[in-house]
Design a protein around this nucleic acid. Structure first.
Lengths: 239, 239
DNA sequence: GGATAATGGTGTCAAATCTACAAGATCATC
DNA sequence: GATGATCTTGTAGATTTGACACCATTATCC
């Protein structure tokens, strides 16, 4: 494969500058079978052929970064209806061996309901797609391991200081289920009584009145109140 | 001015994609004369000719984003030796009327000592440069007001939950000076006794043994201990 | 040299919050 | 009706927080 010449229209003013490629990559987390999982795609082409990578792709000429992330997620993995938040921009030269690529990483959460409703696997042109346990990952392409580590750090932080744990659960859930999400993501056990007290006094949950039936004592179901979305802990350090 | 054609070498693989211009913009804060100030540059050319804008510029072909921010700061404002941290990436189409420009914004703090030592004003090819009180800003070019608001929000947050207030002061400072920084940035008065207790129990300060002479009772000088840099409040929400 | 002005420095108490920790309640199953 | 599994709840001691007022030290001014 030899280099060819590509002509692009140049704008006036000071825009005859080298233009890196700009992509978005998405770290899509789900909570499934008591595991925190992330969606990866097996690369069909070199470089890193056969390795697993984060879904992502080029930003369109007249496209928002956020929209690009949504679109790529839909195209490569058939996933929509997610929570999306910009994470960080990775731009080291050499992170893609082919060319200078600057990647705006997005951090995404998909609720358990959406995971069940959407057909995620194999919906990709880019190759096989599957969920991976965050604690048992394959070798990743490019610098994607680093991006993923950063995303996990952000997720943990957000979990402690905002109320987005519910985004990974169905719209109604029990406190035990929520606690399990927290424990899995933070990777440590939490005290049940203290956890309940903290979540309940944070005033972001409301009981739905329904109960989750099961093999044992039924559990109360809760939903998050609307204001809980993107609720950042309002506690001030210097009141 | 009509469009011309610019040829760029195309790489193999899937890189014949539209390439936006990528820039870095820097929000450089200083604390001067009891004001939180930001460095702005008056635009010498259209668009927004005569308006004030954040310093910034194009990312080099083989240049880190971080390095690009440092370099632009040096070139446009003759400032070096700053604390730099990536803030957010702004990429809405149309934010620059000339072309698609994606801007990685960096958030920067310059210590009082550096402000005094460096010749900041007029050191710019891009035009006049000057400090502006954050609470008394001119009209800004592009979407720079939004970027600045975002930076200020980040600064406030960081101030409450990490220990970077000292980055705006000289290497030795009094507790009153530090409190003044906090009050100015948070834009509200703080209780002196509680402020001191919180700062001192955070264990990020150490007395230098020196005193700041003045018109009145001399004040103890402190420095931040090394570990305080980028110290994130370790307090866990779910211990 | 004593009064004054200005800033630096300190302590306490009540309320709220946090941590560690154990026992009873409810359901299905056998 | 005994068992197993999960759900739910409370408290006491320690820590942290917020509100709040006074004395200390210096230079200056008379």
């Amino acid at each position: 494969m030899s280099d060819t010449l590509l002509t692009v229209p140049a704008k006036p003013f000071a825009y005859q500058y080298p233009r890196p490629a700009v992509t978005v990559d998405i770290i899509l987390f789900v909570f499934q079978q008591d595991q925190l999982r992330v969606l990866l795609i097996r690369r069909a082409n070199d470089p890193y052929k056969g390795k697993w990578a984060l879904p992502g792709g080029f930003v369109g000429e007249q496209e928002n970064l956020y929209d690009a992330a949504l679109r790529e997620l839909k195209e490569e993995t058939n996933v929509s209806n997610v929570y999306l938040e910009q994470l960080y921009t990775f731009g080291e030269p050499g992170r893609d061996p082919r060319a200078r690529v600057i990647t705006v990483a997005y951090f995404a959460l998909l609720s358990a309901e959406e995971v069940a409703q959407q057909e995620v696997h194999g919906a990709s042109d880019a190759g096989e797609a599957r969920w991976w346990d965050i604690y048992d990952l394959p070798e990743l392409a490019f610098d994607h391991q680093r991006i993923l580590d950063y995303a996990l750090q952000r997720l943990r932080w957000k979990l402690e200081w905002t109320a987005l744990g519910f985004l990974l659960l169905p719209s109604e859930f029990t406190l035990s289920e929520l606690q399990k999400v927290y424990e899995t993501i933070l990777n440590e056990p939490l005290d049940k009584r203290n956890f309940r007290r903290k979540i309940l006094t944070a005033d972001v949950l409301e009981p739905t009145g329904n109960m989750r039936a099961g093999d044992h004592r039924p559990a109360k179901l809760y939903r998050f109140s609307a204001k809980a979305i993107e609720f950042e802990q309002a506690r001030r350090r210097f009141p």
